[in-house]
Amino acid sequence: MDKLLNVSSAPHIRDNDSVKSIMEEVAIALMPATLFGVYNFGLYAALIILACIVSCVLSEYIYEKLMKKKLTTNDMSAFVTGLLLALNLPATVPLWVPIIGGMFAIIIVKQLFGGIGQNFMNPALGARCFLLISFSGIMTNFTVAKTTGIKNMIWYGLSGLNGYAYVDGVSGATPLALLKKGEEVDIISSFLGIHAGTIGETSAVAILIGGIYLLCKKIISIRIPGAYILSFVAYISVYSAFSENGFSIDYVANNLCLGGLMLGAFFMATDYVTSPVTPNGKIVFGILLGVLTGVFRTLGASSEGVSYAIIIGNMLVPLIEKVTMPRPFGVERRKHG
């Protein structure tokens, strides 16, 4: 043996999964929602998605080059951030919005706090909330005028064909906003996603397919989405029961399918970096998000609540982890006093 042997500490074998492979799985799981978004909102939505991804990956690359840090653009996490951000934008935003959003997500929320694994807030949601506050007009306009001509239909997809302008053709509300005003919303189209909203949030079924894929691949555990959805349903049911018209299953089901709830529960709240690592912490985190989302939706000014709920939840993660540290195997609960 001429070659020297490698010596290192045990264990000497490693699982095949890597940060990159996990991020790739998440990207694959987002494909149904992404493809549906493009179907629903046309090629312009695809352009927004592309702009977000390019902005995120490029921001990460340039920042790390300038700061002489190790390049991490290969790990696909900036790609996933870009994709998630795009799915959270209305399909009508001008292209500078995704570009600024991507830069904010990567540079301000992720890199300034130390890069991958160090950010305390979900970068995509952080950027979305930044955009919402800064450019609220653009970010809350979901109106798509009915168009004609084959070119427009390709460019604006189903939305161009149908025209998503429910109220008066100007203010452009989402079905969730209508629901809040007490109007009837068709549950089937809510579930399928043929309505106005952000690019990736409209189709509950497409998101569910991706969510189930992640659960089957054991990329995420059921704890966060399960606790989130159950507690949200519980809150909304109670709210509905005490409302003027009494309990309405339609109201609850629509609330579940509409808005960013599904996307938030399966893809945003489960972001590893910004959710608790402790098993019980995940459940506490999920319940907290469910209740916060419910409160924001029912009592807040806006019909939406998922993004802010998750961001507030993100900030409480260290606290949640502290109080939910598991007891080591075989160690008795310490007596107080």
């Binding site: 790990d75 996490s77 890069g115 991958i116 694994g117 555990s221 590893y272 959710s275 098993p279």
Partner: peptide, 16 residues
Amino acid sequence: KDEVAANEPLSCIRCG
């Protein structure tokens, strides 16, 4: 093949 040498440590992503 030594899987330890082949896999450089990266940053923790808190996957749990």
